[in-house]
Design a protein around this nucleic acid. Structure first.
Length: 419
DNA sequence: TCTGGGGTCCTAGGACCC
DNA sequence: TCTGGGGTCCTAGGACCC
């Protein structure tokens, strides 16, 4: 049996941990630059705030319904996520952290125990230790555990937040209840097509011919069908090194000149380099992209990217910044108002196992240099040491008007309790 | 005025090899 | 008139996830 533990409205719940007076009130969390809604409490959903709603279009609705609005505080959410996962880890050796707010757990061999009891205990302990509410679904496959989780979340009174699919009757009942567009692995495109064909529920989907599913939805669709039928084909995935790493941002304003974008792109490259070093990888190629604001039909649009094959594998901030600027200079065209840029590094190899190059190659001095930079930044705060190109008298800030304190990760912002 | 950021997997088709 | 058979590797694009 698998369990899927999912935090309820995770970002909104994190904000409420430190603002308990907001329990029972509508809360939303916005994306970077306070752009659009990326998390909603149940109360916010109830007053009609859709996922992805642009904040500026919903200002009135927020005010009318006294919705509490937060800028995103990923330092807080990341730390709260670790705490939740640590508690879950006490219950099960075999766990896959699937996202910041979800984990699959393999309870094979626990048949003699009562899973609902374990589930309720886990839920209670996570709540007690972190104040984050979770829902838990148990089932013989990962896809069915997702379904069970959805039922637990949807009917908290009846299920107490824990639901188990352990026989065929419950499985069929759950699948007939679940709309096709809500199935894990069925996205917008497939949902529209299936609905058009009269496939309305997850159960209908399991009645399709294997051949049709294979032909139209590839083996991914076929695996999903089997999982929903109760045949376990998806195993827990090990935490693996990333295969791509990206740092991309929408600007708070637009830029028509090369210089300010150059500074941004250097910072993105440095950020990618830091992430690479954290996982012990070097990259062999890099993509740089820029584009204008696609929402503005009235303006001239330009969007371009370039993939650079590096002459050697590296994770040096200095070298990656240099390549990123070279790429940017090749795609930058004057006369456009740029709104977004990004750097993506790809094609990784291990830091410890480098192919030697005949000519040139990476500067070996950068290895101890980057180690020292990482160490200093870890001690004294991110970005304490930067490249000169990152800091040309300009401070880059996101719009974050409603940012909550970093209660759990910064000593200066720690919560004060009066006893 | 204002619209996020970061990932994965699979397949078809082209280019190449013998 | 008639034009083989078997591979690999790479890439772009499409689908999906949170």
């Amino acid at each position: 049996m698998f369990a899927l533990v999912d935090c309820n409205n995770f970002y909104a719940s994190c904000e409420r941990v430190f603002r308990p007076e907001l329990n029972g009130k509508p809360v939303v969390v916005l994306s970077n630059n306070d752009g659009c809604v990326i998390a909603r409490s149940n109360e916010a959903k109830a007053v009609g705030v859709p996922m992805g709603a642009p904040a500026f279009q919903y200002k009135e609705l927020f005010e009318k319904n006294k919705v509490h609005v937060f800028s995103s505080n990923f330092a807080l959410y990341g730390d709260m996520s670790h705490r939740v996962m640590d508690v879950l880890g006490m219950y099960c050796e075999n766990m896959e952290i699937y996202s910041i707010d979800e984990a699959f757990m393999d309870f094979a061999g626990c048949e003699l125990f009562s899973l609902p009891e374990i589930g309720l205990k886990m839920k209670k302990q996570v709540q007690q230790w972190t104040d984050i509410p979770v829902s838990i679904g148990f089932a013989p496959t990962k896809a069915l555990a997702k379904v069970a989780n959805r039922i637990a979340k949807k009917y908290p009174e009846r299920t107490k937040g824990v639901y188990l699919i352990d026989d065929d009757e419950k499985r069929v009942k759950a699948l007939k209840w679940l709309q096709i567009e809500d199935v894990w692995g069925i996205g917008r495109k497939h949902a529209a097509r299936l609905q058009y064909m009269g496939v309305k529920t997850a159960y209908d989907f399991t009645q399709l011919e294997n051949n049709w599913v294979l032909k139209n939805m590839t083996v991914v669709g076929l695996r999903l069908k089997q999982e929903l039928q109760g045949i376990s084909v998806l195993q827990l995935d090990e935490v693996q090194a990333k295969k791509n790493i990206a740092t991309t941002r929408t600007f708070d304003t637009t830029h028509t000149e090369l210089e300010p974008i150059k500074e941004r792109v250097v910072s993105f490259a440095v950020s990618c380099a830091e992430k690479l070093r954290r996982q012990g990888s070097c990259c062999n190629s890099m993509m740089v992209f820029i584009h204008t604001n696609g929402h503005r039909a009235d303006l001239d649009q330009y969007s371009q990217n370039i993939v650079i094959k590096l002459p050697f594998a590296t994770n040096s901030s200095i070298e990656l910044a240099k390549f990123a600027v070279e790429g940017l200079e090749r795609i930058f065209k004057k006369g456009y108002a740029y709104k977004k840029a990004g750097v993506i590094v790809m094609d990784f190899s291990s830091e410890n196992n480098q192919q030697l190059t005949l000519f040139g190659g990476r500067n070996p001095k950068h290895i101890p240099l980057m180690k020292a930079v990482d160490k200093i930044n870890a001690c004294f705060g991110q970005q304490k040491i930067r490249l000169a190109a990152q800091d040309m008298g300009r401070v880059w800030k996101m719009n974050q008007e409603k940012l909550s304190p970093r209660y759990t990760t910064n000593l200066n912002e720690i919560i004060i309790a009066y006893a």
